[in-house]
């Protein structure tokens, strides 16, 4: 009996090791070319994405270039508590979240409305034309975009003030009004990206089966009813995924546009975490402090994303991962 089981397990062990070497040979060795294909990109990702993560430890150190990342002395949470107590802290958090929320509230519905309008446009030619024009601003570089904003809003010769004068209003020096900064930032962003953002909804709408619409038409449903009962439910999953992604970046206002658009007069209302990290880190060469702020921001971002994703999964059974 004993013998029998031993023999059996020994045999199965042999079979297993055979299986393993066979597996190893066919699956891994035969596919070595595939690993070679993946290698350059992986090496790249390792160097430029993972080595900086190792460098994150300087957030807990007093980094000195001469001592290097490893050699600099540990200081624990000094930089973090300094940041939390600094006068900038609440202003930075407020500006960052306010801009992003403003952006979501204004920017999120526009592509959906545009997509629905395009979807129901009865002339294919007009639809194509509107699409071509509205997608175009997406490819304008940030520098040119900000340049455009500045010339359009210029107090003397800008077209916006020219139009204001036409309708009898006083010209406004937009870029010198701190309370207008967020509005300028958000609406120019909607102008630039709403068309592009509508593509994904148009694709989803086009994928809705025609049977449902045909059945609805036979039942006498109006177009508005079809939008409400067929189209909106069908793009709901897409909307939720995009909303999660948007909320996940609640604390990450894009650096480039904010940095280029801000000036000394509107600084207080426009300084966000990413621009502050740049100024502290690279302009004042305060590496450790800047890294600590950046790390804090990144951790908050990940936490928000994971939380929103979890919540959404619970409520709607939809999520990113």
């Amino acid at each position: 009996m004993m013998n029998n089981t031993n023999a059996l397990s020994a045999r199965s062990e042999i079979r297993q090791s055979n299986k393993f070497s066979h597996y190893f040979k066919t699956k891994i060795l035969n596919n070595y070319v595939l690993y070679l294909f993946a290698l350059p990109a992986l090496v790249y990702i390792f160097i430029f994405n993972y080595i900086p993560i190792y460098g994150l430890q300087i957030a807990f150190k007093d980094f000195k270039t001469g001592l290097g990342i490893w050699g600099s002395p540990w200081v624990g949470f000094k930089h973090f508590s300094y940041f939390f107590q600094s006068i900038q802290f609440w202003n930075l958090i407020y500006n960052t979240i306010a801009i992003q929320l403003y952006q979501i509230i204004v920017g999120f519905p526009v592509p959906i409305i545009l997509a629905l309008a395009l979807h129901y446009c009865t002339s294919q030619k007009y639809k194509k034309f509107v699409q071509t024009v509205t997608y175009a601003p997406h490819f304008i570089s940030v520098v040119v975009m900000v340049g455009m904003i500045l010339v359009f809003l210029s107090p003397n010769s800008g077209i916006v003030n020219t139009l204001l004068k036409y309708i009898g209003l006083e010209p406004i020096h937009f870029m010198a009004k701190p309370h207008l900064f967020k509005t300028i930032y958000v609406f120019s962003g909607v102008w630039q990206n709403a068309g592009w953002g509508s593509i994904i909804y148009i694709a989803t709408l086009a994928g809705v089966g025609t049977e449902m619409h045909e059945a609805a038409i036979i039942d006498g449903a109006s177009k508005l009813q079809r939008v409400w009962y067929i189209d909106i439910p069908s793009i709901l999953p897409t909307m939720i995924v995009l909303l999660i992604l948007n909320l996940g970046s609640l604390m990450s206002v894009g650096f480039e546009k904010t940095f280029l658009l801000q000036n000394d007069i509107v600084l207080e209302k426009s300084e966000v975490i990413s621009t502050y990290v740049y100024k502290i880190g690279l302009l004042q060469a305060n590496y450790s402090y800047s890294t600590a702020i950046g790390l804090f921001n990144n951790v908050i971002n990940c936490t928000i994303l994971l939380t929103v994703n979890k919540l959404s999964k619970k409520v709607t059974k939809l999520g990113l991962f």
Binding site: F48, L56, V277, L282, T291, N298
Partner: peptide
């Protein structure tokens, strides 16, 4: 997973700059 992780987390400005 190694790739996707980098979409959500990274070293940020200064560690990349030092590198």
């Amino acid at each position: 997973n190694v790739l996707i992780f980098t979409m959500y987390f990274g070293g940020g400005l200064i560690p990349t700059y030092i590198l």
